[in-house]
Design a protein around this nucleic acid. Structure first.
Lengths: 205, 205
DNA sequence: TTCTGTGAACCGCTTCACAGCG
DNA sequence: CGCTGTGAAGCGGTTCACAGAA
């Protein structure tokens, strides 16, 4: 484990830095500073330096951070220096949008299997995948050694699906259903909640 | 303004409570406790009580919180006791999924207009809306007094679209593009970042 | 001189613990 | 007796400020 008591909130900012580094690179820059990286990420310069210093000394005093070098380091820390096979469960409108969205593949998340419980959907082609029945999902996922999954099923089915995925050995779940999932220690869940984000903003209107 | 120095992190938990209250109601319960509400929301009981006490005394000592009463109170605090008209900009795969998703309407977010810049998409029907050109978006949004918008355009166009929305008077933006938007004070942005959430989880694998 | 890395001070959220009310 | 509401203590993340390397 690379994990040695680094605050979760620090880890959660690394993907943001990654995104901004990509942006800076696209602008043709090769070097940046904690100042610039922070401003474009919405984080203070001191915070950026402190965050990065948890993992090593990636900068050069007087000049700053080499963008390619820092990008590689963060990719390695987040274990993004490899391809992750992903299972997608639920192929409604949202599932289709995700299956077709190139963003995940660009970042190394390869949708390897698509599952659904609806017999009418079994066998249809989505992208270059055939939708499979959920009946043998556990075996298929376990057999392929998949550890990352996305859930895009209706709320009432989400917990059941999560339980199956965990049984199959999945350790990270991206949950699109608007319900909190209960999972054992050792399994991570992140819930995508546009409605909760909306409801948060209305307070300030 | 209802806002009187209440920590943003407290406000951000209210929608979570709302979701859990809805769940408890569906289970047939009429009363709950800070204990139960917390457990099902992934928050400690003390935290729940402290959060709610920022806004008033909603519970009864010895018994707990009336679910319907607390729900109403939180809805009022978050200004969700009304319908919000929303503009959706960008009608690709994701835009379609959002336009068809009933969840927003159920929570009082009424998609009133859909805009896109692609001439081929202007005029097509999505749900019961006709996709409009972005050419007169500012006037249309300002005319309708819309203050909430969702952006589902490609990354490179997101900031431009955001600037137009702000010019039109929009104060809350739900951003689905994987880039940080820079907005003036008084405007809120929430970014939906499944990729960032994914990348956060891989650290722990 | 510039900008990083970092101990120390600071600040704010979380947790505790209990008074008080039903 | 049960559970809320809340001051006070505790804790952890953020900001400061500066030594030190390029």
């Amino acid at each position: 484990m690379t994990e040695k008591n680094i605050p979760d909130i620090v880890v959660s900012r690394l993907p943001v830095y990654l995104q901004t580094l990509q942006l800076l690179k696209k602008e043709g820059k090769t070097i940046t500073s904690s100042q610039e990286l922070g401003e474009k990420s919405g984080i203070t310069a001191a915070q950026v330096r402190k965050d990065l210093s948890f993992f090593g000394e990636f900068g050069k005093q007087g000049s700053g951070y080499n963008i390619d070098f820092l990008t590689e380091k963060i990719l390695a820390i987040l274990k993004l220096d490899r391809v992750w096979d992903v299972a997608l469960v639920g192929i409604g409108d949202l599932g289709h949008a995700i299956a077709r969205y190139p963003g995940f593949a660009e970042r190394g998340f390869n949708i390897r299997f698509i599952f659904d419980s609806d017999p009418k959907k079994i066998g249809i082609k989505v992208g270059n995948h055939e939708v499979q029945s959920m009946d043998n999902m556990v075996e298929v996922i376990r057999g392929a050694g998949i550890r990352v999954a996305m859930i895009t099923v209706p709320s009432h089915a989400a917990q059941t699906v999560a339980d199956l995925l965990i049984e199959a050995g999945v350790k990270a779940i991206l949950n699109y259903a608007p319900v909190p999932l209960i999972v054992p220690d050792g399994v991570r869940v992140e819930t995508v909640s546009p409605i909760i984000q909306m409801e948060h903003m209305t307070y300030y209107l």
